[in-house]
Computed example of a mutant assay.
Amino acid sequence: MNPRRKRRLTMVSIILVTLAAATGLVLYALSQNIDLFYTPTELVEGKGAAQVKPEVGQRLRVGGLVVPGSVERIDDGLTIAFDLIDEGPAQITVEYTGILPDLFREGQGIVAQGELISATRIRASEVLAKHDEEYMPPELAKALKGIEHVPPANRQQEESDNGSGGYQ
């Protein structure tokens, strides 16, 4: 093989190896930034046919309805804990430090993004409240199908009609 051909082959090999390494690093970085969406039931029982459960420490998003009566302030007043449910029997607890969105209410649909700290507990870094009754992410709509949600305005009317001051 002549020296000119050898240099070309070496250069092409170096370029291909560099390109493969760069592609591998980009894919690795992207996989670290993916936040998978779960419902409370999928979080507890597993997702899909393989029943894959997230690992403790994994970043994820979870969506569901805030359980009425479950919102409580912890210690400093900025840390809030509340429970989420969906159509299944599973119930998880979300801890959030910060100011909640104005539309956050008990019985309201929310999506929390954060880190799994135990099998049924999430430390949220962000909480998003649903802004109207018309739109819901397709995954959440499918997961919550069949749960009866009484908007807070209607719930107050029902409570005053039957004379009870709380939830039943």
Rank of each mutant, 00 (worst) to 15 (best):
L30M: 08
R4Y: 13
I122V: 15
G107C: 13
I92M: 02
F104K: 10
K142P: 01
S164Y: 15
Q156L: 14
P3D: 11
E133W: 08
G24L: 10
V26P: 01
K6Q: 15
V150W: 12
V44D: 08
N154C: 03
D161C: 02
R121C: 04
I15R: 08
R7H: 13
K145M: 08
G146S: 09
A119R: 00
Q168V: 07
F82T: 05
M1H: 13
P138M: 03
Q113H: 11
A141Y: 00
L25Y: 04
Q91V: 07
G69Y: 13
G24C: 06
L103S: 15
I14W: 00
P89T: 13
M1G: 15
Y38I: 08
R8V: 04
K47R: 13
L116N: 00
G69C: 06
Y96W: 04
P54K: 03
A50Q: 11
A21S: 12
I74S: 01
P138Q: 09
S70Y: 09
G166K: 14
R155D: 10
L43A: 08
G57E: 08
A50G: 05
P3E: 11
A49M: 03
P138D: 09
F104M: 12
M136W: 00
I34F: 13
F104T: 05
P3C: 06
N2I: 03
V17G: 03
A129C: 09
R4E: 14
V26M: 05
E45Y: 04
R105D: 15
G77V: 02
G64N: 01
A129K: 04
M136T: 10
A50F: 01
I14R: 11
P101I: 04
G166V: 09
R61M: 07
L19N: 10
E115L: 01
N162F: 06
G48F: 02
K53F: 02
A153M: 10
L144K: 00
I80C: 03
T120I: 02
T93P: 00
V17A: 14
G88H: 07
L25H: 02
I14C: 14
Q32F: 11
I74Y: 08
T10F: 07
I85V: 12
A21Y: 04
T18Y: 14
V94S: 00
P137E: 06
S160N: 12
V71Q: 04
P137F: 04
G57Q: 09
P138A: 05
L65P: 00
T39S: 15
I74Q: 05
E106K: 09
I34G: 01
V26F: 14
L116K: 02
I122R: 03
G88S: 11
P54E: 06
A112N: 03
S31P: 00
P40A: 06
A81K: 12
I110S: 05
V56Q: 11
T10P: 00
A129N: 04
S125M: 14
L140F: 06
I92F: 02
G107E: 13
L78V: 04
G77K: 01
K53D: 01
Y167F: 10
Y28I: 01
D76Y: 00
G88P: 00
V67K: 09
I15W: 08
F82H: 07
G64H: 00
N2D: 15
K145Y: 09
S13C: 06
Q157L: 14
F104A: 11
T10K: 07
G165L: 14
L128Y: 06
R73Y: 12
E148C: 05
Y96H: 07
I99S: 13
R121A: 10
